[in-house]
């Protein structure tokens, strides 16, 4: 799990152009939106593309999206539970 979280942090930095941050500076338990990294709606779309492109996973509903994209850890848990590849 910790390995997946570390990988996810690097991928998030890359796709969201957060080059001023290092993976260690991202708290995997902190909210990704508003607080924490202060991401916006375009970033949310980018994270959805990341899940599909890198892990072959699609979010079913907006409610599921809110739950999955809450933090790096919740994203990692979603990947671990659904990525059987």
């Amino acid at each position: 799990m910790e390995q997946l979280i570390a990988k996810l942090k690097s991928e998030i930095i890359e796709v969201l152009n957060l080059s001023e941050l290092s993976p260690d500076e991202i708290d995997e338990n902190a909210p990704l939106f508003v607080e924490g990294l202060g991401l916006d709606s375009i970033d949310a779309l980018e994270l959805i593309v990341l899940l599909e492109k890198n892990y072959g996973l699609k979010l079913g509903t907006a409610e599921e999206g809110k739950k999955v994209l809450r933090s790096v850890r919740s994203m990692a848990e979603f990947i671990r539970e659904n990525n059987k590849g």
Binding site: V15, I42, L45, V49
Partner: peptide
């Protein structure tokens, strides 16, 4: 086919 929203905007 993975268009990037942050590029598209």
């Amino acid at each position: 086919y993975f268009p990037s929203p942050s590029v598209f905007v």
